[in-house]
């Protein structure tokens, strides 16, 4: 990572203090996949979601989302002409930026985007591209910026949900409501409570199988517009996990609809 010479950086060789902590053996139990699927009300499994639109008055559209302790702001700006583009194109473009605030994670982040953030930006862009009607905005570019204020897991899926809401509030033509969910497969039933979870749903897997899956789904058309998985999961197990995820995405869609409805009603009043 190139050093940012315009800002004051911390000392080069500094290490987070948590490495030197003695671990307390508090464990939190995690359900296995079967238990999760039997549970018909999956919405109990994932942390509470709070969604509000119109937080940033300067932007065309904006949204603020809280998933558990994770807090994210997303803003959408007006479609404007694509710079440096000469040839005619029938479709518009989306430019997406995903950023962790330097104080948001346990380990301090840099001001510039590092590889993980760039990767997350790309994932977000792909997910949103299928939701926005690009052919209605030929030669234009919609800019979406998301900032994670506090990262307590599933920041990317939170950003995607909020971006969908912000785009709707901005009036950008869209095909469908977009929702997103993260599933984390942990190695065993019990996990250290201090360890930060990265997923909204945690499931216990077999010993050698673990990973993280992020899914974005277009609600009404039942199309999965984005899948990203890391880790090591056998193929058939993967299918089960994805089924669980898409069901829970559906439950989130209700929350998104409610929020948008409230905003429209407020506007009319």
């Amino acid at each position: 990572m190139p050093l940012d010479h315009k800002r004051l950086n911390g000392p080069e060789e500094s290490v987070p203090y948590e490495l030197f902590l003695r671990h307390k053996q508090e464990t939190v139990e995690i359900k296995t996949l079967d238990e999760v699927t039997k549970d018909s009300d999956i919405s109990r499994e994932h942390p509470k979601i709070y969604l509000k639109t119109g937080t940033v008055s300067q932007a065309k559209g904006s949204a603020y989302i809280e998933i558990g302790e994770t807090k994210i702001i997303v803003t959408v700006f007006d479609p404007k002409e694509i710079p440096n583009k000469q040839d005619y194109s029938l479709k518009g473009e989306i430019s997406c930026e995903f950023k962790y605030a330097p104080f948001s994670c346990t380990k301090r982040r840099l001001h510039q985007q590092d590889n993980e953030e760039k990767r997350n930006s790309l994932i977000m862009k792909k997910a949103l591209e299928s939701a926005v009607c690009l052919h209605e905005i030929p030669n234009f570019q919609v800019a979406i910026h998301s900032l994670v204020l506090q990262n307590d897991g599933s920041a990317l899926s939170g950003a995607i949900i909020a971006a969908g809401v912000a785009l709707a509030e901005a009036g950008v033509p869209m095909f469908d409501i977009i929702t997103s969910m993260t599933l984390e497969i942990c190695r065993s039933n019990e996990i250290d409570s201090l360890r930060k979870m990265t997923g909204q749903i945690q499931v216990a897997g077999e010993k050698s199988h673990y990973g993280t899956i992020i899914i974005s789904k277009l609600h009404a058309n039942e199309q999965i517009c984005q899948v990203h998985q890391t880790g090591f999961i056998p193929g058939d197990q993967l299918k089960n996990y994805i089924t669980v995820l898409s069901k829970s995405c559906d439950s989130i869609a209700a929350i998104v609809k409610k929020c948008l409805l409230k905003e429209v009603v407020n506007h009319i009043k």
Binding site: P234, G235, S246
Partner: peptide
Amino acid sequence: NCVSTISLLGSGSLHQDTLFQFL
């Protein structure tokens, strides 16, 4: 038979069953 990464390329979306077929 174990999958270590999947990701969708490009800007298309797939139905869940198609996704499983692909896998």
